[in-house]
Design a protein around this nucleic acid. Structure first.
Lengths: 124, 124
DNA sequence: TACAAATAGTCCGCTATCGTAACGAACCGA
DNA sequence: TCGGTTCGTTACGATAGCGGACTATTTGTA
């Protein structure tokens, strides 16, 4: 199982996946919101507002707003850190797990479509 | 050169690439704007407003706005179709080509990082 | 017990996007 | 030429995002 791909293939993979998500009318997350969501689900906790702001190099209010939005959609949730009540931990939800699993399937499907197109010579 | 990847690998690839673009303070395009840009650059012309609206299943004004924004950033441009002056053709720009090439490099770099992490067992 | 530091949230004015509906320009067939 | 159709844009009111500055709460320490 390898993941080598040329730039053009990479872009076409990206296109196929993102066009699919737009067509499916998936929650229209911004790049920042998506990067926040993926970071919370795929990198080791704990995840705090300040830590995420540093990781993504965006302002704190941007993180707070992104969490607001993800919370509204029940894709993530806040929990006060009992060890340091100034901090807020951002945690996963069931709905968020389901959403990301489906998103992963969508990317995998895009990769399959790209592979088939290549086999047919549709991509030169 | 193959492009097989599991759902988790796919998501981690996505995370690495999108976090990189956010950190690099790349133009903060929405999913719709990005899907429009990729479609214009990677699928055969001509690209009209109506056609793109159908392809992406979004409203016409949403396409018009996305083109407005991409035009402001000189990532795409409008050209009236001389064969049917009601239609507007969306075309590539040099700056858009450069932007997407860099974006492709970013995804390829994310794939390499993912591969290395796997080799080290960091992804179980 | 005071006081500074750290953390997250709120407020401000501004800009961008949304979908529906209305609009003007261009095309086409009768 | 006239009427309907197609195409893209604009108008509208509503919602959401932005960064910088400020606030409230909690913590650690002198």
């Amino acid at each position: 199982m390898s993941i080598d791909l040329s730039e053009l293939e990479a872009l076409d993979l990206w296109r196929r996946a993102i066009v699919s998500s737009v067509r499916l009318d998936a929650p229209d997350l911004t790049a920042r919101q998506m990067s926040l969501l993926l970071t919370v689900y795929l990198t080791p906790p704990p995840h705090t507002v300040r830590g995420l702001a540093q990781t993504l190099k965006v302002s704190k209010p941007a993180i707070t707003r992104a969490i607001d939005r993800l919370s509204d959609m029940d894709l993530a949730r806040r929990k006060v850190d009992e060890a340091d009540r100034r901090s807020v931990l951002i945690q996963r939800t069931v709905r968020g797990s389901v959403f990301l699993r489906e998103y992963g399937e969508l990317i995998v499907a895009a990769a399959r479509g790209l592979k088939n197109a290549k086999a047919k010579g549709a991509l030169a």
